[in-house]
Amino acid sequence: MSVGAEQVVVITGAASGIGAATAALFGRQGWRTAGLDLRPSATDLSLSCDVTDAAAVRSAIDAVARQFGGIDAAVTAAGYYEEGIDVCDITRTQWDSMLQVILGGTVNTCAAVLPHMLARQSGTVIAISSELALGGSATDLHYVAAKGAVLGLVKSLAAELAATPIRLNVVAPGPTDTPLLAPDSLWRKPDYLATLPLGRLVRPDEIAATVYYLATEGVMYCGEVLSPNAGAVI
């Protein structure tokens, strides 16, 4: 990865939560930031984009590359969360939607961004998975399966591109204090937090810092999973 002025990062899901924190950190470090989200993001280039639409993602990514002259890093943070649904009650629609956004969004972003990176023989992709995909969970099976699929996808892409300068890795956050966790979420309950070695939720800036480390000093990670998770999965 080149270390020069004005490197470019594109972030899906940049409008809130982990995506927003990541955009903010990279921006503070002098990167040009581009955000793909359904809603506007606080980035240098905010593009309205549905990550489940492959053509729309391709178009948005091409626009970022044109605007900034290339893409050095891509972070796939687009996603949403549903909890409290028994395995037998997950509808086909709920299952498909979760897969389309979380796995499909990652696939579409990789498909759009990798040709640019390969053409420049430089670049890194960091996908946001979840510690739930490492250790399993309950009442959110479709979310866990989708986040797990991202692990397999990125590890395989990393294997496929290992001989190139492109690096692909995963950050698997622990339960993180973002709007994805509703005020009454079970992950916010004191009884649950007491089970974590750190005894607290992870902060979005801690995830952003991990992404930034991988993007700037992580050349030796190839298909790896870094999990800042407060000790939820060890």
Partner: peptide, 24 residues
């Protein structure tokens, strides 16, 4: 430096493997 510094504040009992894919 990452684990020792401010960015590593949510890492507990993790095993970072910067091995170029050897242990993937």
């Amino acid at each position: 430096a990452f684990l020792a510094g401010p960015g590593g504040s949510a890492f507990v009992g993790q095993v970072l493997q910067p091995g170029g894919g050897v242990t993937r």
